[in-house]
Design a protein around this nucleic acid. Sequence first.
DNA 1: TTGTATGCGTTATCAT
DNA 2: ATGATAACGCATACAA
Lengths: 325, 325
Amino acid sequence: MPKPTMKDVAREAGVALGTVSKVVNGIPVGEEYRVRVEEAIERLNYRINSYAKGLRSSRTYLIAVMVPNLISPFFAKLVNCINRSLAARKYRMLLFATDYDNEQEQEYVYLAEQQKVDGIICLSYNPNLIIPAGVPLVSIDRYFSTNVPCVSSDNYGGGRLAAEKLVENGCRNLAFLRIGSKLVNEPNKRKDGFVSACEALGVPYTLKIIDDGTPYSAFEDFLREHLHDGKLDFDGIFCVTDSLAHQILGTLRDMELRVPEEVQVIGFDGVRCFGDMELYCSTIVQPIEDIAATCVDMVTEKDLDKAPSLVCLPVTYAQGGTTKG
Amino acid sequence: MPKPTMKDVAREAGVALGTVSKVVNGIPVGEEYRVRVEEAIERLNYRINSYAKGLRSSRTYLIAVMVPNLISPFFAKLVNCINRSLAARKYRMLLFATDYDNEQEQEYVYLAEQQKVDGIICLSYNPNLIIPAGVPLVSIDRYFSTNVPCVSSDNYGGGRLAAEKLVENGCRNLAFLRIGSKLVNEPNKRKDGFVSACEALGVPYTLKIIDDGTPYSAFEDFLREHLHDGKLDFDGIFCVTDSLAHQILGTLRDMELRVPEEVQVIGFDGVRCFGDMELYCSTIVQPIEDIAATCVDMVTEKDLDKAPSLVCLPVTYAQGGTTKG
DNA sequence: TTGTATGCGTTATCAT
DNA sequence: ATGATAACGCATACAA
C-alpha cells in the first residue's frame, strides 16, 4: 500500500483536492468540510509529502548548520542550542561537520543550496568561502563582509575581562597563551582586549602565541624558561581557550606550582565537564544560548539584508577554582 | 534571476531536457553532448533541485538521526561519527534532539517520515515509540523488537570486564553504582555482567542503584555508611557511566580516600576531556565509531529485513589513572 | 543514442 | 467558500 496522497484524502472525504490542501495548511474552510477532511486524514494516516511541498512552495523549513565537528564540547553545545531554537520555530536542521576542511565546507554550502534550505548557519574559518546569493547565511565568529551577518561573543571584551579579573585577584605579572591558526582573527581579539587592559592597568604582560602545527611542548618550554628557583615569573595566565587552560593546568601541576595560590589561570569558552557539570577552570563564558538564538532569529527572518552585519554578545566571568575570586 | 533549471541548461546546451538529466545522473550519453551539457551547467551555475528530484525518485539521500541531546559528550561523539559515516556515502543528516521527551520523539519520527528520509537512526528510550512501516529504522542501545535492528555495545561483557579488571588489580570487595531510569534496561546489563563476573570469581559485591529523580547525595550517604575509621569497605567501584564515576571521584576526594591506592574506580563509556584529550577515569570504552558505522551500514542497506535484529559490538578496557593497571 | 511526454504530490489561480 | 486545473523541476518510459 503506497502512501496516501492528498488526492486519496480528498476522495475519502468526498471533497476537492484544494480543500484538503487548505485544511492541511490551516487556511479557513467550512467547519463541516474541515472535520470531514481531518477524519479522512486520520483514517488514512495521511502525512504531507514535504518534497512535493518544497517543490511547489519556496519555504522548506530546513536550515543547514555547518560546524567543524561535534567532538569539541563548545561546538556540540552550540549545535545543541541551535537545534532547540530551530525546533521551537518548527524548523528542521540539516547538519554538516566539516572537519575544518575548506573544500568540504564549500561543497556543503552548495549542497545546502541545492537542498533548497531556507538558510545556512555556519561556523567556518575558510577565508575564501563562496557564499551563494539567494540563500540567507549567518556566520558565527567569523566576519566575512558587510552583507553576511556575523554573530560572535565579545572576544575583545572577554580579553579585557580576563586581564581585569586576574589583576583584581592580585596578579602583578601576566601571560597570554594562544595556539591556533594565524588565519583566525577572532582569538586575536581576545589577545587585543587582554593587552589593552594590561596597558590600561599598567601591568606587565608577556604573549606566547604559537602556530597550529607547533607541538604543545612549546608551551612547556616557554613556562620552564620562566621558572626560576621553583617560582614562575607570572602569577596570572590567560589562555585563549578552556582546552588550552586545561593542558596548561596539567603542566603547572607537573611543575609543582600551586593553582591558584602561586599562579592563577583563566580560560575562555565556559565549557563544562560532561557538558553540564563543573567548569574545567575559571573562565570567560561565551553566551552560547544567546549566540544560537540570535543566529536562528536572523536566519529565519525575512529580511536578512537589513540585519546588522555584526552582533557582538556579552561574555561573563565565572570562577572555576583556578583563580582566587 | 531565478535559479536555472534543467530546462535552462538544455536550452543553453542546445540539447533535450532528458539528455541533461542523464548527464547529471551519470547515465552514459554521447561524449560531445556530455561536454556541452557540462559546460552549460558550469556557465549557468546550475544546481539540481533536490526537492524535485526527491519527489520524482524515491531515494532522497537523507537520514534522520535522533538523540536525546548533544550536550552529553557520548551522544555528541556518536552523532559526529554518524555524520562522518553518512557523508562518506553521500548521505545527508537531519538531526533531531529529543531531550528525552517521548512525545517529541514520536513527533520527530513522523516528521522524518514525511521528510521522506531514506532511513532513521535513533537512540530513544521511549518504550512506546511507534515505528512506521516503510522507513528503515535502526535503533542504538535499545531493543524494540525483532524487526527493528538494534546496535549496541556489549554492555553485559563490559560489566564482566569491569569486575574482572578490578579483581585483577587486587580488589577484594566491590561495589556497583548506578543512577538512571528503571525503564532503561541496557545499563542493567552492565550490572548483570558485573554480578555474573563477581560470582564467578567469588568476590563479594554490593549494588547501589538509585532512581532518576533521586539526588546524587544518596551516593554520598551510601559511601559514608560504608566508611569506618577512614577506611572504605570497598576497594573497587564500578560506576555505570564515566559521568557518575567522575562525580564519585569527587566524593572520594572529599572523603580523603586516595585513588587508586585505597579505592579503584572504573566507569563506562570512554568519554574524554574536551572530546579528545585524556580520559576522566579508567573505563570500559564503547566502540563509538563502530557503532556509528554499523548503524549507517544497516540503515543504508537495501534489505533491512534480512539484517540481524541485534548487533553487539565489543568493548575494551582503558586505564585512565583511577585503577592500578 | 537522443528527444518527447507524462506524472510525482502539492500549492495557487481561477471560475463557480 | 469550494472545486477544477495549471505549474513547480525532474526522471523515465517510450517514440524517433
